[in-house]
Structures are given as C-alpha cells and as structure tokens.
Design a protein around this nucleic acid. Structure first.
Lengths: 230, 230
DNA sequence: ACCTGAACACCGTTCAAGT
DNA sequence: ACCTGAACACCGTTCAAGT
C-alpha cells in the first residue's frame, strides 16, 4: 500500500457524478454561493478548468445537483395505502430539502430540464395516485396541491429565521414588553401581528414540523374526501 | 423648457426608492441576473459607484426589491367575508409573483428581514382571520397552509416551462406517438407519467390558473370546515 | 482521451478623492 | 452632502496547448 492511498478519493478520476456530488457537499457545507467552478475544482484536487471536460457549464452542474437532491426522496409505493405512502413521501421531501437548504432557491431560477431521478419520482407519485383510484385529471390536481404545499413550506422554512432564533428574538422583546417602546410601536402599527408574536410564538416557540403536518393532513384529508365522493 | 427636460427622469436625484424601483424594472425586463450594480447605475444614468451612497450593499437592495413586490399585493379587508377576502389576496399574490418572476427565487436565498409592506400584509391577513373567528393558533395554521401553497405554486409555475411550451413539446411528441421510439421508451420507463403526458396535458394544454384555483379552494374549504367545527 | 494555465470580460465592494 | 474612478479580489468561460 502506497502512502498516497489516503488521498485516493481526491485523486480518483474525475467524472460528472463525482463532480456533482462534490458540489452538493460543498453547497451543504458552505452555502450555494460558495459553489464556484474554481473552488469546486480545488475540493476535487483538480486543475481549475478540468471540470469543463465533464460538465458543459455551470448551469448544467446546477441541474445535476437538483436531480441529486430529488434522488434522495423516497418514492411512494403503488400498492400500499395511498395516504400513508404520500405522507411519507412528503416528509421525505421536506427532509431532503432541509438537508440541502440551497435546493429550493435553485429550482426557481432554472426552468427545469427534469433529470432521471425527478422523472422516476414523478412516475411513482402519479402511479400511487392512479392505483388509488384517482382519475388522470384528479391525480394531476392532487399532485399539484401537494407539491405546491411541500415546496412552498420548504421555502418558508428556509427564508424565515430558524425557529429558535425567532423564539430568542421574541423572548427578549416580550421580557420588557411594558418598557420597550419598540414593541408598543409594533402593537400600534400592526396589532394582529403583535398579538401573534407576543401571545403565541414567543414563549412556546414555533415547531415547523408540527406546522408542516397540520397543513399536510388538511390537504390529504380534503383529497380523500373528494376521492370517495367523486 | 430646456431640451434636457426629456432626460429629467434619468437625471432626477437618486434615492433608495428610485434605485429599488429601477432594479425591479430591470429584473422584470432582463431577468434577475441582469441586475448588477454597474448596469443598474447605467440605467439610472449615474456613475457606477454612486448607488452605494443610498444602498449599503447589493443584499440590501434585493431586500428592498422583495418588499416592493409585497407592496403590490392587495391586503385583505377585515370586515368582509374572510373566504372571499383571502381568495382575492391569494390571486393578487400570484399575479404579483407572475409579474416579477424573479421574486420567488430571491426569497429563498435570503433569510428575510421583512420590510414595511410585508409587515403590513402579514397584519392584514392575520386580522382577517382573527375577525373571522379563528383562534390565534388556528389563524397561524391557516396562514401557514395558504402561504406555503401560494408561494409553492408560484415556484412551480416559474420552474416548469410555460404552459404553451409544454403543449407544444407534447403535441409534437404525440403526433408521431406510434413512430417515435423516444416516447415508447418513456412509456416503458415511466408508464404513469407517459399516460399523463400523452393523455391529458397534451391536446388540451395546461391551465395554471384553473389549477391554482383548484388547490386554493380545496384548502379554503377545508379551513372553513374546521372553523365551523372547532 | 484527459487535463491544464493564461487570458477575457465580467462581478461586488473599498477607498481616497472630487464638487 | 452627494457623487465618482481606480483598484482589488473575485467570477464563468474560451482556447490553444500540454500529456
């Protein structure tokens, strides 16, 4: 065994897959804005421009990163109970999007050329819905509401400061609610908002997980009602 | 009247507001990636670095742009029927996000420091819900589902190719569905997806507006049920 | 086939300087 | 107070060249 065996990973031959994987890890670690072609090449111990042999351009790399995230989502089975299967798939999606917080923002900017993982997932979800008795039209409707909700929730979870940060900020405000003129100004300008901030979110904190499930179940319940009615 | 009256708009004194407005227009016209400090200064007929006197940095400018978009959303009234008020607010949000397609993607990347327009809107929505009899807790739930859905839908509408593009692509595929080996491969690998693509979306096209309303009403109906039940 | 460095046309931002 | 250009440390990408 040669001593440079330890750097084998870094010295392994480049490939599109290895590049995409490294980009995902880099984005997870340092944020999406840290993913530059040069830094990525550094991480891979490659010359700055070597990546262009495997990846036509940065946009294509970003597409690959998105498909890698989609690949982490557990596809639903077509033979189980559709509700529990799609519930699992929804939380699986949320978790993948939590692990890779940069992914949601990436999806908007590019009009997607869906990768293989994405297509496979689409097929599984549609299959689950169709086998549960949804018409093609209703399956599309059901899919659309669910995905809008799931990705929109992820967007909020991403763009709103972390739950504990909210709690911290609010707690500090609530402590001197009497003396602090700022929160009185807030209460005057935005009474309902102040009510929510002071009365609810603050002391108890805010649980994104519970919130997610509330909306998810509301939607799944409503879909089940329409399925059995129609 | 002097002849340079026509360039008055361009020569008007700079201000944060004018800069933000120009940035929004530039993003609408040429996409968010065209919004660079230098190009923006050009548009305003100002020296390249003059903007920094009014705006601390680009991130702050982007925050301002987001708040400008939020300002275009019609806030719901607190005294009308909550369902119709919030329905109007939802479509108003969708339309604002359609006019400024770059906005959704911007929201993820920054953990928001909500601007005044955003706060005002939050307050109006919460007020509408509270006056309709929702408890604080339920108002938060109701708000969360709706916003997740609305912004998630906007995200999909943005990232999926335009409706007519889909129709075009699919139409072309459907025309030689017998002869084209690609779609047969698609049908083999992704049977349910192929079914949807060929059978539904293609000939009739896909109406994002109708789809949006389906999910919106599903959610509002479910919320109304819980309101009257609880 | 696989990898590379130099070079080009861009970025955001700082800073010292102009009016 | 308001605006500015030069300069710095970055980008993505092309291209001609190395093994």
């Amino acid at each position: 065994m040669r001593t440079d065996e330890q750097t084998a990973q870094a010295k392994a031959p480049l490939s599109r897959e290895r590049i995409v994987l490294a980009a995902v890890e880099l984005a997870d670690r340092e944020g999406i804005e840290a993913v530059t072609m040069r830094k990525l090449a550094d991480v891979l111990a490659a010359g700055a421009m070597s990546l262009y042999y495997y990846v036509p351009n940065k946009d294509d790399l970003l597409d690959g990163m998105i498909d890698a995230v989609k690949g982490e989502i557990e596809p639903p089975a077509s033979d189980g109970d559709w509700r529990t299967e799609l519930r699992k798939r929804a939380t699986s999606t949320r978790h993948a999007l939590q692990r890779h917080g940069w992914a949601v923002g990436l999806m908007e900017s590019r009009t997607q050329r869906p990768g293989p993982a994405n297509l496979k997932l689409h097929d599984a979800v549609l299959g689950c819905l169709r086998e549960a008795g949804f018409s093609i039209e209703d399956a599309i409707h059901a899919y659309s509401v669910q995905d809008a909700y799931i990705y929109g929730f992820a967007l909020q979870e991403q763009s709103v400061p972390a739950a504990d940060e909210i709690a911290d900020v609010v707690d500090r405000q609530v402590e001197h609610i009497e003396s602090n003129p700022e929160i009185e100004a807030l209460a005057e300008a935005y009474p309902y908002l102040a009510e929510v901030v002071a009365g609810y979110v603050g002391p108890s904190g805010y649980d994104f997980g519970k919130e997610f499930e509330y909306g998810l179940d509301l939607i799944l319940d409503a879909l089940e009602q329409r399925r059995t009615a129609g």
